[in-house]
Design a binder for these strands. Structure first.
Lengths: 96, 96
DNA sequence: ATTGATTTGTCTATTTGTGTCAAATTTAAT
DNA sequence: ATTAAATTTGACACAAATAGACAAATCAAT
């Protein structure tokens, strides 16, 4: 699962920005941002926030996708994925 | 968050089993199962399944707690935890 | 006080994650 | 068709996280 990669690729292409330029902004190798957009690698939390600024969207939007990707990663191929998600949600509610 | 640790401790104590015995069954050090029950360490997926058999409960029950603990771990201290959970759930539904 | 059970702290090995670099491939312009 | 830039791929390096062992300390019940 790779919602965030697709999102940042779409935003980059809609603004006609090169991978090279995003890479420079994040101070990482171009190869790495390429892999990230295609879901082969993941952004760090700090990079997500930098990209939200770069593309003028809220932290919330990108961090939510980023978290969701991580969660889906954790439960992928798990037979009780939905049960786990529901239990986590129930417990989270009690913590707020 | 440590639902599974609490659960397996409760089951062990209700049956008057020693940490030493559970450790032997799982073929790990007693110190490790002690840490696991107190939430300092995590079980592997295989160990969860072995324990479900050991305590005569379903895989589903323990794997759900195990997954939920992992998910809560991922989102702890995240401001958009609930949003991430909801998005993951929505996407998961589309995958089924 | 002694013994058995549990916990705590430290250390090690393995795995996973983040990154680079060079080479290969794709895309676009001439 | 040729070339040049952009992107992708694969191999490697380093760092951080994880699973585990072991020894010593603490706790509980005689």
């Amino acid at each position: 699962m790779n919602s965030l990669g697709e999102k940042i690729r779409a935003m980059r292409e809609s603004k006609d920005i090169l991978l090279r330029q995003v890479a420079a902004y994040l101070e990482i190798d171009t190869a790495l941002i390429s892999k990230i957009e295609r879901g082969e690698r993941r952004l760090t939390r700090e990079q997500v926030i930098k990209l939200a600024n770069y593309y003028n969207v809220t932290d919330e939007e990108l961090l939510t996708l980023w978290l969701s990707d991580k969660l889906l990663d954790t439960i992928e191929n798990e037979p009780f994925a939905m049960q786990g998600l529901n239990k986590a949600k129930t417990i989270l509610k009690t913590l707020i």
